[in-house]
């Protein structure tokens, strides 16, 4: 061990190095402490409190802990006995799996087109990104009231002018089609973000690979699957992680597509909101169950962890430093200190 840390060919005094290490550690701790404390306070405390809250009956979210009633795992039992919560889990699975696949495939396709040497590249990139910076409220209002509207909406008008009467009569916002409509709007608002990331990734791939492939006679499809895809693997993984995190927190589109909770649009976060804050309609208010809401939060946390574990298993990180390089790097660093 000693010979690896302090190579024998470098004459150093052990005490002096230990002192230096201590000084460096103190220096690092003093710089890291504020960030670590902030992390503990902002993330760890609410997480621990939510975990605890999920085991209690709590009337209101800010109630003092003294008024909480311990009920064990009853809140989780309530969730798994709730058809509405199970429906919300089905919806979130569809949003994550099907929605994610569609959005990332379309984003990849557009990113490849944009980086393929098409004219006005920056214009197209900005145009595709534009919906992402529009407020979700404005975006959904536009979709529900002006695009999907069953009387004067864009789709109805266009299909009518094309003589496609059955498509023109399609009720985009009827209960059975509402999920599809919501996902179209969500994809429209999200794709630009992933196109931007993927296009930047493709731009970062050396042109040499493509030129060499062309000389070897590779067509566009071969170049995409043999060069672009493998080299974009890490970027893809990041996109999937980002999409997954966004999907698990799916809330704004649901609440904007549904004035009150609906089967087609309910997600775990909507269920949690209803449980924690209630929902008033006329003179009726849904009963509050903050503990159950916290249990939903715990479920979402578990889902996010599982998704990340799954991604790590399916798409492991590339090892970019081999053991020899690592020892070389360490040796040169130690040498520099002396």
């Amino acid at each position: 061990m000693e010979s690896e840390a302090f190579p024998s060919y470098i004459p150093v005094r052990r005490k002096e190095i230990t002192m230096r290490h201590k000084g460096r550690n103190l220096f690092m701790i003093s710089f890291l402490a504020p960030a670590v404390l902030c992390f503990l306070f902002i993330f760890l405390y609410p997480t621990a409190r939510t975990l605890l809250m999920s085991l209690f009956y709590v009337e209101f979210v800010t109630d003092d802990m003294k008024s909480w009633t311990f009920i064990g795992l009853d809140n989780f039992e309530t969730l798994f006995g709730s058809a509405l919560f199970l429906r919300s889990m089905t919806n979130i699975l569809k949003i994550w799996l099907i929605g994610g696949a569609v959005i990332l495939v379309i984003s990849t396709l557009l990113a490849v087109i944009i980086t393929s040497g098409v004219k006005f590249k920056n214009f197209w990139r900005s145009l595709i990104y534009l919906p992402h910076i529009i407020s979700v409220v404005a975006l959904v209002t536009m979709w529900t009231q002006y695009a999907f509207n069953n009387q004067y909406g864009l789709f109805k008008t266009v299909f009518q002018s094309l003589g496609l009467s059955s498509l023109a009569a399609f009720q985009w916002t009827a209960p059975e089609n509402l999920f599809l409509s919501m996902m179209i709007a969500y994809a429209y608002g999200s794709i630009g973000f992933y196109v931007l990331i993927l296009a930047a990734g493709i731009d970062g791939i050396s042109k040499d690979y493509y030129e060499a492939a062309e000389i070897e006679g590779a067509n566009q499809i071969a170049k995409f699957f043999r060069i672009t895809m493998p080299l974009l693997k890490d970027i893809f993984k990041r996109c999937i992680v980002l999409y997954s995190a966004g999907a698990m927190g799916f809330f704004a589109y649901s609440t904007l597509f549904s004035f009150s909770t609906e089967l087609a649009t309910v997600t775990p976060l909507v269920y949690m909101y209803d449980s924690v804050f209630g929902r008033a309609s006329g003179n009726v208010t849904t009963p509050l169950n903050v503990g159950a809401g916290a249990a939903v939060g715990v479920m979402i946390m578990i889902m996010v962890v599982l998704v990340n574990l799954l991604l790590d298993r399916l798409m492991p990180n590339d090892v970019d430093i081999n053991p020899n390089k690592k020892s070389l790097a360490r040796r040169s660093r130690n040498a520099g200190q002396v």
């Binding site: 058809a83 009150s260 309910v266 929902r279 006329g282």
Partner: peptide, 11 residues
């Protein structure tokens, strides 16, 4: 609406 579970199905 007294049962928030059944109300969305009913609607």
């Amino acid at each position: 609406e007294s049962n928030p579970e059944i109300k969305p199905v009913f609607s």
